[in-house]
């Protein structure tokens, strides 16, 4: 467990330095081996429907993609930088206007060069996600891949 700490610290620095992450005001809540949690505050600039004030799905996609990439970068058998190959997003319900959106991603399996993730996004109502995602990523092999 302890040996993954430098990797997670490096991944956290890498993801915090992403310009689009800063532009969206995304905050990294937690990064752990193969897991990440991030929050995007409500922001009027990200609204997709000016009548209802609901955040655009595109911003939610970016949050899910970022959080998923971070989960890959924190996996003990992977390391950053990561790149998305495929991302499938289901928009389950509109996010409540005014509420922050929190994404949780899990990298549940890696092969030599590919990583598989699943992720969800919630607002304050945690009973049903706003959106969910499954995806495939590539990564640069970390030191522990060598045998």
């Amino acid at each position: 467990m302890a040996e993954t700490e430098p990797q997670i610290a490096a991944a956290r620095r890498m993801f915090a330095a992403i310009p689009q992450v800063a532009a969206l005001g995304i905050v990294i809540d937690e990064m752990a081996p193969g897991k990440a949690r991030m929050t995007m505050p409500y922001d009027a600039r990200l609204v997709g429907d000016p009548v209802t004030g609901v955040i655009h799905g595109g911003a939610v996609s970016t949050l899910l993609d970022t959080c998923s990439g971070a989960a890959v970068a924190c996996h003990p058998q992977a390391a950053g930088p990561t790149a998305t190959i495929d991302l499938r997003i289901n928009y389950i319900r509109p996010a409540d206007p005014g509420q922050a959106i929190t994404a949780r991603a899990e990298c549940y399996h890696v092969t030599r060069s590919f990583a598989f993730i699943r992720a969800t996004a919630h607002d304050d109502d945690t009973s049903l996600p706003v959106a969910e995602a499954v995806g495939t990523f590539t990564f640069e092999a970390g030191p522990r891949v060598a045998t």
Partner: peptide, 20 residues
């Protein structure tokens, strides 16, 4: 510049591409 997701390459953020 704020559309960048990987400053090292640099490359557009995958989420931005999805949103676009």
């Amino acid at each position: 510049d704020h559309l960048i997701g990987d400053p090292r390459l640099p490359a557009l953020h995958g989420g931005v591409t999805a949103a676009f």
